[in-house]
Amino acid sequence: MARTPARRKAWVIAVANQKGGVAKTTSVASLGAAMAERGLRVLLVDLDPQACLTFSLGFDPEDVEGSIHQVLTGATALADVVITTDDGVDLVPATIELATAEQLLMTRTGREQILKSALAPVLTSYDVVLLDCPPTLGILTTVALTAAQGVLIPLQCETLSHRGVGQLLDTVHDVKKITNRRLTVIGVLPTLFDARTSHSKLVLERIGADYGVPVVEPPIPKSVRFAEAPAVGRSILVTARSSKGAAAYREVADRLLLERGLLEPATADA
Rank of each mutant, 00 (worst) to 15 (best):
A99M: 12
A34L: 08
L204Q: 08
I83M: 10
R241F: 14
G20E: 03
P121T: 00
A23M: 00
A240Y: 15
R163W: 08
Q103M: 12
T159Y: 13
A2R: 13
R41W: 13
I13F: 10
I153S: 05
V82K: 12
S161H: 02
F59L: 02
T73P: 15
G58A: 06
T159L: 14
E37D: 10
P135V: 05
G166A: 15
T76N: 07
A29G: 05
E97L: 15
R181E: 15
L237F: 10
L140C: 06
N17K: 01
Y126K: 03
D90Y: 12
D48A: 05
T100P: 09
A51W: 03
V89H: 10
F59V: 01
T54Q: 03
S117V: 11
R255C: 12
P61V: 09
D127C: 13
L262P: 05
L44W: 10
S117R: 14
L169P: 01
S200N: 00
V12N: 05
A227L: 06
P221T: 00
K222S: 11
L43H: 03
K9H: 11
S125R: 08
L202V: 11
V232G: 08
D80Y: 05
E217P: 09
F226W: 06
L256M: 10
L192W: 12
I96K: 13
A29K: 03
Q156M: 01
W11T: 09
G166M: 15
V151T: 01
A33Q: 14
H173N: 14
G212F: 00
V92R: 11
L91M: 09
T239L: 03
T73F: 09
K177W: 14
Q70A: 04
A144P: 00
A2H: 15
F226P: 00
M1S: 14
R206L: 10
T84G: 11
R108G: 13
R41E: 11
A36R: 02
G138A: 09
D80I: 03
S243V: 04
K9V: 06
E158K: 01
V215Y: 09
G138I: 13
G233H: 00
I96S: 14
A33D: 08
L115H: 00
L98T: 02
I186D: 07
R111V: 02
D80S: 07
V92S: 07
S198T: 15
A144L: 02
T26P: 03
R108D: 11
V71G: 04
V151I: 08
A120S: 12
L155E: 10
R255F: 14
Q156T: 04
L119V: 11
L145S: 04
P230Q: 08
A227E: 13
T84C: 14
T95Y: 02
A2S: 11
L72C: 00
A36N: 01
T179I: 03
I83T: 13
G150L: 04
